[in-house]
Design a protein around this nucleic acid. Structure first.
Length: 418
RNA sequence: GGACAGGUGGGUGAGUGGCUGAAACCACACCCCUGCUAAGGGUGCGUGUUCGAAAGGGCACCGAGGGUUCGAAUCCCUCCCUGUCCGCCA
């Protein structure tokens, strides 16, 4: 959630920032007014309640002394009613405020480039040069067919469309990649954890998936549980409603989980192959930091993800997302896009974001600095999306006959094959 | 899923209707005393929000949500969670 006090005091500045993300200023006007109204309504209720409480104390004293209380009771009954109606009014405003405020995205950093869509994203740099093929490289689904690596039909049979089964070496590579990523992240200081993939609504609210993006989530019927769309939800919310001590920060975590997304609104996009599935594997990094640490950790996370791709020999580029393409919770995001020779283009394989204190404010993640409690910063990034890495390996390591080589660094993870 | 017992501040734990936002102890922080490896004394020490320059007030919160009452951590209802036993199960 954005800082409402900041919005109140620096309205024009705040509204200019959010304009970058395409937020209309009318909604902010409304929010600001609700905030002011809430303060007023709360003050009214609180003074009425204070009156009620102090009289109530007298009531006890009167009774103890055997004095007549009928007049006092009448007065108190009236006060009680008045306070209740003032409270109801304040609650109503608060409800509306929360509903509005929780749907406002995070402020983008000032350094974020202007732009409306991914076409306006800014390439930062390229790493490794795509290799020249002496033949026309195939797309991953063609290679999957030749090698018997992906069983689309039976995946659909088991679940529905956009579910698939990996077979043979593809299944082994998937598993090898997960282990390779986790080890790589651990070497760089990220603590491996294993988390529930069902999380409750409070957690989804904490990281910003709820209430606005409920349609993108799979919900368990009859339970307050959702399949997580990313391990970011579980990792970040491990510290939901906690006050950490300054010396335990930064906290660096990594986890492998399957991720589940309805992909609502993505009908017709990437329907071939396994680029866009309802279930996919991902190894995630999350950092909980002091505000002054988050820029440095951000760079570290980007570097880490890039280094993994380099180690796999996969050409990629770093792209700074423009305001319009930035996610809901992110103040800043760098995407890593891997080169897919079959598609002859770069495709997103990792996304590293700094949410500043946006998620921390929702999830109440603070740390103690002296006597004060300060909101932490939270960051997240993929290292990496496993299925897409498999695709990248297939397309980059393909031979003319459709066979696929195994990257050197993965071989130790595939001993059973060698 | 069933039965019973519980859920109080960082921890242990007291508190069955007003004097309790909460004793005591531990932990922690600062200070004093003393001097030698251990101890004594003092002070402070939940969260959020609001008013205030500050000092200091107000309000809310004792698992969550309702209810009873002039007044609830304390009584009632529902739910959630934990423990133990039973059932089921990788």
């Amino acid at each position: 959630m954005i800082d409402l006090k900041y919005l109140e005091k620096n309205f024009d500045e705040a509204s200019a920032k959010l304009a970058k993300k395409g937020v209309k200023s009318e909604i902010l006007d409304e929010l600001k007014e609700l905030f002011a109204n809430l303060k007023k309504a709360k003050a009214q209720f609180e003074s009425k309640r204070a009156e009620q409480k102090s009289l109530s104390k007298e009531f006890g004293a009167y009774k103890a002394q055997g004095k007549d209380i009928s007049e006092l009771k009448e007065k108190l009954d009236r006060l009680k009613e008045e306070a209740a109606s003032l409270q109801a009014k304040a609650d109503e405003i608060e409800q509306k405020l929360l509903q509005t405020a929780l749907a406002i995205p995070n402020f983008p950093d000032d350094s974020v480039p202007e732009g409306e869509s991914e076409d306006d994203n800014v390439e930062i740099k390229k790493v490794l040069t795509p290799k020249e093929f002496s033949f026309t490289p195939k797309e991953h689904w063609e290679l999957a067919e030749i090698n018997g690596w992906i069983d689309f039909e039976r995946g659909v049979k088991l679940a529905k469309s956009r579910f698939a089964i990996l077979r043979n070496d593809a299944a082994k590579i998937e598993r090898a990649l997960i282990n390779f990523f986790l080890d790589f992240n651990a070497k760089n200081g990220f603590n491996e954890v294993c988390v529930p993939v069902l999380n409750n609504s409070k957690m989804l609210l904490g990281t910003g998936q709820l209430p606005k993006f409920e349609d993108d989530l799979f919900k368990v019927e009859g339970e307050d549980l959702y399949l997580i769309p990313t391990a970011e939800v579980a990792l970040t919310n491990m510290y939901n409603d906690e006050i950490l001590s300054a010396d335990e920060l930064p906290i660096l975590l990594t986890a492998y989980t399957p991720c589940f997304r309805k992909e609502a609104g993505s009908a017709g996009r990437d329907t071939r192959g396994i680029i866009r599935q309802h279930q996919f594997d991902k190894v995630e990094m999350v950092a909980i930091t002091k505000p002054e640490q988050s820029d440095e950790i951000f760079e570290k996370m980007v570097q880490n993800a890039s280094d993994i791709l380099t180690a796999l020999g996969l050409p990629h580029r770093l792209v700074e997302l423009c305001g319009g393409d930035l996610g809901f919770s992110a103040a800043r995001t760098i995407d890593l896009e891997v080169w897919l020779p079959g598609q002859n283009r770069y495709r997103e394989i990792s996304s590293v974001s700094n949410t500043r204190n946006f998620q921390a404010r929702r999830a109440k993640i603070r740390y103690k600095e002296g006597k004060k409690n300060i909101l932490t910063h939270t960051l997240n990034g993929s290292a990496l999306a496993v299925g897409r890495t498999l695709i990248a390996i297939m397309e980059n390591y393909q031979n003319e006959d459709g066979s696929i080589d195994i990257p050197e660094v993965l071989k130790p993870y595939m001993e059973s094959k060698i």
